[in-house]
C-alpha cells in the first residue's frame, strides 16, 4: 500500500467511522438512560432515509430533509414511548427490547408498502457534490462533509450531556433514577424525551448516509447490527464508548476490506469478539455493567 492509498484508506476509515457514530449515537443514548436496546433503531434509520427521500422528491432541499425527517421520526418515537414502552416499564427491560423488535418488523413492512422494493438514492446537495484532492487523489466532498458532521455531532452531544441542564438531568437519571426523581427531575418525561431524541438521531443518520449507502428494504437490519456492534465494542450506553467504538469498527471494516477483501465479511465480528472476550463490558463500559437484554 503506497502512502497515497494509505491516506485515502485512512480517510475512508474516518468517513465510515463517523457514519457509524451517527448511526450508533441514538442507540447508545437510549441504552445509557433507559437500559433498553432499541431493536427498532435500524428501522428508524431507514424510515428517516425514506422520509428524506420523499421530502427531496416533493421539492424540498436535502437540508430540509435533514431537519424534517428526524423531527417526524422523533415524534413517532415519542408516541411509541408513550403508548408502548411506558406500559412495559414495570416488566423489565427484556419485554421492552422484545417490543422494539416487534416494532422493527412492523415498520420494515410498512416502509416496503410505502416506498416499494427498489433501491433508492438521495442525491447529496449541490454544494457538496464533486471532489476535492487529498494527497494527489480525488475524494468526494460529501464524504468529507460526513466527517465534519460526525465530529460536530459528537462534540454537540458531549456538550449537551455534560454542560446543559437537561444533560445534567440525564446523567442524574442514568446514575440513579430514583434519586433523580426525588430531586425533582421528571424521570418519565426524561425517558420519553431521550427515546424520541435517540430515534431522531437514527433518522438523521439515515438521511445523512443515504447518498452513500442508498436506501432499500433490508438495510434496516444491516444498520441495526452495525450499530449494535459499535455500541457493544465501545461499551454500552456511553457516548465516549460509541465514539471510539465507531472508530475501531469503522477502521476495522475499511482496512479489512483493503487488505483482506475476501475476509472482510468477518472483520467487524472478529474485532467485536476480540474486544468482548478481553473486556466483556466493552472498551469504555464498567466491568460490572454487562447487564441488559
Amino acid at each position: 500500500m503506497t502512502l497515497d492509498t494509505f491516506v485515502l484508506q485512512l480517510t475512508n476509515g474516518l468517513v465510515f467511522s463517523l457514519l457509524l457514530f451517527l448511526m450508533a449515537a441514538g442507540l447508545s443514548l437510549i441504552f445509557g438512560l433507559m437500559d433498553v436496546v432499541n431493536l427498532a433503531h435500524g428501522a428508524f434509520y431507514l424510515l428517516g432515509g425514506y422520509l428524506g427521500l420523499s421530502i427531496v422528491r416533493w421539492g424540498g432541499s436535502f437540508w430540509l430533509a435533514l431537519l424534517l425527517a428526524p423531527l417526524l421520526v422523533g415524534v413517532l418515537g415519542l408516541l411509541l414511548e408513550l403508548t408502548l414502552l411506558r406500559r412495559l416499564y414495570r416488566r423489565g427491560h427484556l419485554d421492552q427490547v422484545l417490543a422494539t423488535f416487534g416494532v422493527a418488523l412492523i415498520v420494515a413492512d410498512l416502509m416496503r408498502a410505502a416506498w416499494g422494493a427498489y433501491v433508492e438514492v438521495v442525491a447529496p446537495p449541490a454544494l457538496l457534490a464533486g471532489q476535492v484532492a487529498i494527497g494527489g487523489l480525488a475524494f468526494p466532498t460529501y464524504r468529507l462533509a460526513v466527517i465534519a458532521v460526525g465530529l460536530s455531532l459528537a462534540l454537540g452531544l458531549w456538550l449537551f450531556v455534560e454542560r446543559s441542564t437537561v444533560g445534567m438531568q440525564i446523567r442524574a437519571g442514568v446514575s440513579d433514577p430514583q434519586m433523580a426523581g426525588m430531586l425533582g427531575v421528571d424521570v418519565p418525561r426524561l425517558f420519553a424525551g431521550v427515546f424520541a431524541g435517540g430515534c431522531a438521531l437514527a433518522a438523521f443518520s439515515g438521511v445523512a448516509a443515504a447518498p452513500i449507502l442508498t436506501l432499500y428494504p433490508g438495510l434496516d437490519s444491516e444498520i441495526l447490527i452495525l450499530a449494535l456492534v459499535v455500541v457493544v465494542v465501545g461499551g454500552l450506553g456511553t457516548l465516549r464508548g460509541a465514539f471510539f467504538g465507531s472508530l475501531i469498527v469503522g477502521m476495522a471494516d475499511v482496512f479489512g476490506k483493503a487488505l483482506l477483501p475476501e475476509f472482510s465479511v468477518f472483520a467487524i465480528f472478529v474485532v467485536m469478539a476480540a474486544v468482548l472476550l478481553t473486556r466483556p463490558a466493552g472498551l469504555f463500559g464498567r466491568a460490572t455493567a454487562t447487564r441488559g437484554a
Binding site: 454500552l236 467485536m272 468482548l276 472476550l277 466483556p280 454487562t290 447487564r291 441488559g292 437484554a293
Partner: peptide, 13 residues
Amino acid sequence: RTSGIAFLMLTLA
C-alpha cells in the same frame, strides 16, 4: 465469558 447483551452479541457474531 460474557452475559446479557454482550452474550447476545457474541452468539450473533
